[in-house]
Design a binder for these strands. Sequence first.
DNA 1: GCCGTTTTCGGCCCGACTGTTTTCAGTCG
Length: 568
Amino acid sequence: MKNLQVAKILNEIADILEMQNVEFKPRAYRKAARTVESLSEPIEEVYQEKRLKELSGVGESIATKIAEVVETGTSQYLEKLKKQIPVDVEALTSIEGMGPKSVKKLYEKLKIKTLDDLVRAARQREIREIKGFGPKTEKKILEHLELARRGTERILLGFALPIAEEIKEQLRKRGAVNQVEITGSLRRMKETIGDIDILVSSIKPEKTADFFVGMEDVRDVLAKGITKCSVILKSSIRVDLRIVEAKSFGSALMYFTGSKDHNIKLRKIAMTKSYKLNEYGLFKKDEQIAGETEEKVYGKLGMDWIPPELRENQDEIEVAKKHKLPKLIEYDAIKGDLQVHTKWMDGQNNIEQIAKAAKALGYSYICITDHYSKMVIAGGLNDHQIKKEIEEIEKTNKKLEGIEILKGAEVDIDQDGALQAKKSILKDLDIVIASVHSYFNQPKKKMTKRLVSAMESGYVNILGHPTGRKIRTRKSNPIDMNDLFEASKRTGTYLEINAFPERLDLNDFHARAAKEAGCRLVINTDAHNIEHLKFMRLGVAVARRGWAEQKDVINTLALKGLMKLIKS
DNA sequence: GCCGTTTTCGGCCCGACTGTTTTCAGTCG
């Protein structure tokens, strides 16, 4: 995935153009950068399929530059701009509060080109001598240096969500607030997030702000006002708080949930109706005609309420205008988890503990799927062990009420697409998951054929974590997704959305493509202990971001319906 | 440089906070 690299270069171009006081172009480059950054498919593919210009904010000129970056890794245009102003804009602007204009001034007056130059000048108290700067700027530069050097790595959704919920809970209990919601990319449930955004309505904004910046986990206060506060937690995560009145809560919720490009489009629609839309409401002249709830604002703009997960400026606004939005799968629609590991292999809990935890979550079934491999060496249960495990499942089923434990296994697809398992054993299982755990670097054709062969074996019900990617650490295996979708339908093999935080595989983009191709999905946690079962909502979020409805996901079915489907 | 239910030119989202000023520019989201 070169997406981040492309976005970085586009942003850098925007920075330099802004330093040169070029109008409007920086905005165009930034918009294109945002689009590429939030794209869920590799920009290389978009380029190869000649779809660059279909991207929002990408026209003739930027498409050419993206193509160049994809092919060569650099942009001649950027190199030319850099020669005109030879400063490390990217590093310098990564300091909180430093933008292109400040960088330019410091270059002109003090010849500051790098982060090191900047730090030296700040320490020697040279910066305060420049008009527009002062001692506080110097102090801020030195304070935020470490943060800037470390870079701003995005956080996994599954890691950020509990932290945000904890803050929300604290504000609810002790922050003098009426309403409190998590907003931003977290509310949209993006797979990674940059920071945590929280919105509250409060009758005592000062008290709320005081409480917020005084929370125990706060390491650093970046800004504190009665409508807006920003802090850095001890864990280096940035949290922004917005405080509004109740009559503006809905419009503020929309505004801070984003995405930015979704909002901009809404504002433009408001303008065509001679309205003005901002975080305080929807206004006709000076009169607020909506704002208390999101539903009302969307309604006045002539469309249905759009679930946060869809607000990515794809086609959701057009579809909402036509009242054709899908009825997305609900977070509580899942009836059971079909990929769970136990102590029999590398999990931490036994079958009974897992079954009880699943029952407590309201599930009516759970499928035990420890690794099984006929090759003793491969690190899975062997033939004898899995038979013993099946016996334990049967015994536990007799003992427990209100939850059905299904017999399953996760089997490895070898490099040629064969299942490393005895057919006689697979026949005795309720559900067989097949997945790839080795030889990731095969050519696209071979990898695709490998997956399709496994699906055609006649024994496989679910293809586990289909692309093999791990967020930030392992790229997707090369797969022709259209061939995969076709095989999925033809063989009745369901594609997994693996809900483990660093997997989320399929991702939102592929989930939508699969749904549109007519495939059905299954959402599993791949839990290795009972706490992991709670990752389910991350998988449901991916499905929702992929526009999936309840009928698209097979483990929303009751046990009887599920087993009928599997047997067929 | 992009874009269009005011289309191929003429616009381009908008408000809060900060640090510097003494009314505002720059930055951020």
